[in-house]
Design a protein around this nucleic acid. Structure first.
Length: 877
RNA sequence: GGGCGCAUAGCUCAGUUGGUUCAGAGCACUUGGUUUACACCCAAGGGGUCGGGGGUUCGAAUCCCUCUGCGCCCACCA
């Protein structure tokens, strides 16, 4: 088949992706082979591909494709996540644009809008992954809100509830007044804000004394239910046991004592507002204080706010400060910076709020997950440094608030049949719930209509923590073939930012529901940043358009660009020139094949000696690289593996090997050599394929006509063979000789096509294996072995060997002498340092045998070289 | 404030239990080279007191202490 001069990625990439799909190579079914499984970290269903996804999924595809080549049954399960908060926020925003208020819609109406949205945008990101070359088993695509997936989630909720691990609690949560929902601690971002510290004076009941408190939130005085002082604080002896009067509302509240109060901060008096501060809540519980919630859902004041009722908290703050000042309660105002919690999604300031929530007890669930990672190392994190972070979180874990005040998500399967706090049952269906309720109440009159399901939805992570099991239907149907075959999965590739949200919880769920880990290894990628180290984000506009990058540099080029400098766990400073380098690598391979492809073969000419040696050498070099590559892969050092391959192909294969075996201009090549070159080329393509799947598959089919079963994607990874170290080190030596020749050519402006004479004094007794190659690569007339220095020649040395290139006339003796003298001085200095080390008794006594042997060898080499240099100098006069 | 981690060439990073190959790679840079696969190329070259200081050792980029500058996680004091 005729090869185009230039590689056209846009056509080639589509062609081969379709080909792979058509022949079903991404699809996996359980069989007798060893499975290799990855479940994708499901991207948000309405998301678009960004650089983080590109990196992440490139890594997964490299691992999957390599596993496939290694003969494993590779299965990469794709899918998307319903991302309740993000998606619901987007749907609400879109409805708002259309003039529709979410609160005017019924639950079903809203869900319809959300599903429409999902169906419209959902899966766009999966289509984009195909452009990148991801070899996912698309037949297995899952969505966390698929019926079967939701069923699994509900089943797990009911099970955990029945085990007594899920409870309802009145708890302080992070309330987002804009989204009117609860956020997890992880979704709250603390920002430093400039604010004021207000000093307020409270009167003491039946006394003329006053006390002063400092607060950043004067509007919360309506929720004050105590003043707290430190029992050790001598300044406030007079206050002990007294009562204080809250300004404006004139409520009388107790003055309590607790050493929680920091005597140094503010005034040493603390106002206690249990409804609006976590610490105050704890104090309140301890001292049995009343709880007064002064806010509505949207953080405007309720009736406890008296004449501020209905006003927003920030408006009320301003106005109340004014009122306090007018009545003389405001002592002073200080500037104060504090950290304010804001919503990751809506940016609204978070309000700590007490509300009814569902919680999962974590204390016992977490135990096997800690043991698996930190004790047994059953699950390994790459890089290992994240184990510390994991430990810290797992050992300080708090109960998980799994309810969200959202519609989009799995609705909590709790059904209320009465007004009492405990008048509810938990069941997988409303019918079952009804039966349970009848049993519980002994009231046979209850009907479906009496059963009112909880309004809240479950946290998205409560569905995704089951992902490695539920994608194989392992929750509903634990004995099915898929789950038995594919679980536990092999590698999980994700970002460290969701180590707790997701990774840790999957481990917990895995042990709870399968009694087994969900995956063996976790590869934590870094964040993709721009050249200025800024996180790539939509708001900064510094994130390149992923698909545009693919258009410009080809998917292969972008994949290589992303992996060239991204060690596991290290942030990746993304630079488009890396993609250029990736594309350049593709062109290099393409052109190398064009060269080979263009050779005419002649079956009658014998194989040159130089080609025989070149083949033997490259095969060893390849095997050595293969060992290195395996080692990098085993440590998940994908960048290093890629770099090793890059250098092997660029330098050893293209730079050296092809030049060694290349026939003279317009001359044919012998059949024997060409056959070996093609086999070598195939092996090269195999190791590049996981990184550059398209280009390699394309060239693979130029090499010869192949049936679909012989496609590169399903070929076999190169076999390991013994490495001939001798030939590798002989080449190292030869390459130094060739460099010496090139240097002389360059110095004297001798063009390559002019053959030159060459002599050697072989003090090293080095082998002549590579002589034909040195001769070819240096364009030498011959290599003469001589005993004495050649006069009228330029010289150079490799170790103690001396090489001569005869020069007609123009040798500058002084320059030669100077060069030799400098080399001599350097070598003598080196010898001295080695000998100093060797004459140090403590070194000889303390250093390991091998180190001393090496030092002795250095000494011997230096001595030999000095001898050579001295002889040369003497001969020059 | 508590915890973890990082600092090596202009940039991005390797450097495994202190000792061959320990001061490296890729990119960038400089110089020279295209009738013969590829200028998306080839050849050669410059460039670092391994963040500062101190210590342990025969020997330190590597171990210890300290200082400085960064990053991340946790708790966030009214």
């Amino acid at each position: 088949m005729q090869m185009p001069l230039k590689y056209d990625a846009s056509q080639v990439e589509n062609k081969w992706y379709d080909y792979w799909m058509k022949h079903n190579y991404f699809h996996s079914e359980p069989d007798e082979r060893e499975p290799y499984t990855i479940v994708i970290p499901p991207p948000n269903v309405t998301g678009v591909l960004h650089m983080g996804h590109m990196l992440n999924n490139t890594i997964q595809d490299v691992l999957i494709r390599r596993a496939r080549l290694l003969g494993k049954n590779a299965c990469w399960v794709p899918g998307t996540d319903h991302a309740s908060i993000a998606t619901e926020a987007k749907v609400v925003a879109k409805l708002k644009e259309q003039g529709i208020d979410k609160n005017d819609l019924s639950r079903d109406e809203f869900l319809k809008h959300a599903w429409d949205w999902t169906n419209e945008y959902g899966g766009v990101i999966l289509q984009q992954l195909k452009k990148l070359g991801c070899s996912c088993d698309w037949d297995r695509t899952k969505f966390t809100m698929d019926d079967d997936m939701s069923e699994a989630v509900i089943k797990v909720f009911v099970d955990l509830f029945n085990k007594g691990l899920i409870y309802r609690g009145y708890r302080m949560v992070n309330w987002d007044p804009e989204a009117k929902t609860t956020l997890s601690d992880e979704e709250v971002i603390y920002e430093e804000r400039q604010g004021n510290l207000y000093y307020l004076q409270y009167k003491i009941e039946e006394s003329t004394d006053t006390l002063t408190i400092a607060t950043t939130r004067p509007e919360t005085i309506f929720g004050d239910t105590a003043i707290c002082i430190n029992p050790n604080d001598e300044r406030f002896v007079n206050l002990r046991g007294k009562k204080a009067i809250v300004p404006i509302s004139n409520r009388v509240i107790p003055i309590i004592q607790d050493d929680y109060v920091d005597m140094e901060f503010g005034t040493g008096c603390l106002k206690v507002t249990p409804a609006h501060d976590e610490n105050d809540k704890n104090l309140g519980d301890k001292h049995n204080l009343e709880v007064i919630d002064i806010f509505n859902e949207d953080a405007s004041l309720n009736s406890f706010g008296l004449h501020y009722e209905g006003k927003d908290r920030f408006v009320a703050r301003k106005e109340i400060v004014k009122e306090l000042e007018e009545h003389g309660f405001l002592v002073k105002t200080e500037m104060h910076t504090n950290k304010v919690g804001t919503s990751e999604r809506t940016k609204a300031v978070i309000e700590p709020r007490l509300s009814d929530q569902w919680f999962l007890k974590m204390e016992d669930l977490v135990k096997p997950a800690i043991k698996a990672v930190l004790v047994d190392e059953d699950i390994k994190l790459f890089p290992k440094k994240f184990e510390n972070t994991y430990r810290h979180w797992m050992e300080n874990i708090r109960d998980w608030n799994i309810s969200r005040q959202l519609i989009w998500g799995q609705q909590i399967p709790a059904y209320y049949y009465g007004d009492g706090k405990d008048d509810f049952v938990v069941a997988e269906t409303i019918e079952e719930a009804l039966e349970l309720a009848k049993q519980k109440t002994k009231n046979q009159q209850l009907t479906i209509a009496n059963m009112l399901q909880d309004n809240d939805a479950l946290d998205t992570w409560f569905s995704s923590w089951l992902w490695p099991m539920s994608v194989f239907d392992g929750i509903r149907n634990p004995e099915n073939n898929d789950i038995k075959y594919y679980y536990p999965t092999n590698d999980l590739v994700t970002g460290p930012d969701i180590l707790f949200f997701w990774v840790a919880r999957m481990i917990i769920a895995g042990y709870e529901y399968k009694g087994e880990k969900p995956f063996n290894n976790v590869y934590l990628t870094g964040l993709v940043r721009d050249k200025q180290r800024r996180k790539m984000s939509k708001s900064l506009g510094n994130s390149p358009d992923a698909l545009k990058l693919i258009d410009n540099y080809s998917a292969d080029g972008v994949r290589v660009g992303l992996l060239l400098s991204s060690a596991a766990g290290n942030d990746l400073m993304f630079d488009e020139t890396l993609c250029q380098q990736g594309k350049g690598f593709g062109n290099k391979i393409w052109n190398a094949y064009r060269l080979v492809d263009g050779w005419e073969v002649n079956h009658t000419i014998p194989q040159p000696e130089s080609s025989k040696i070149a083949i033997a050498w490259y095969e060893s070099k390849f095997q050595k690289a293969l060992i290195e590559i395996e080692d990098h892969f085993s440590k998940y050092r994908l960048s290093d593996a890629l770099m090793a391959i890059y250098k092997l192909i660029f330098d050893d294969f293209c730079g050296w090997f092809l030049e060694m075996i290349k026939p003279a201009y317009q001359q044919p090549i012998d059949a024997e050599t060409l056959k070996s070159v093609m086999a070598i080329f195939e092996d090269n393509l195999k190791i590049v394929h996981p990184f550059m799947p398209f280009l390699t598959e394309d060239i693979w089919h130029y090499i010869k006509e192949r049936t679909p079963q012989e496609a590169l994607i399903v070929s076999k990874w190169p076999e390991s063979k013994p490495v001939n170290e001798t030939i590798i080190s002989e080449f190292e030596f030869a390459s130094e000789v060739i460099s010496g020749i090139r240097n002389i050519r360059k110095e004297k402006n001798i063009v390559f096509k002019d053959a030159i004479g060459f002599s050697v004094i072989n003090n090293e007794k080095s082998h002549t294996t590579f002589d034909t190659i040195i001769s070819k690569m240096g364009n030498l007339e011959a290599i003469d072995y001589v005993k004495e220095a050649i006069e009228g020649a330029l010289s150079f040395r490799v170790k103690s060997n001396e090489y001569f290139v005869p020069m007609a006339g123009s040798i500058d003796l002084q320059v030669e002498i100077k060069k030799l003298t400098e080399e001599l001085n350097y070598t003598e200095g080196f010898l001295k340092s080695v000998q100093k080390k060797l004459s140090n008794e403590r070194f000889v006594a303390g250093a390991p045998e091998q180190v001393i042997v090496n030092e002795r060898k250095k000494e011997a080499d230096a001595l030999a070289k000095i001898e050579t240099l001295k002889t040369s100098l003497a001969s020059l006069g």
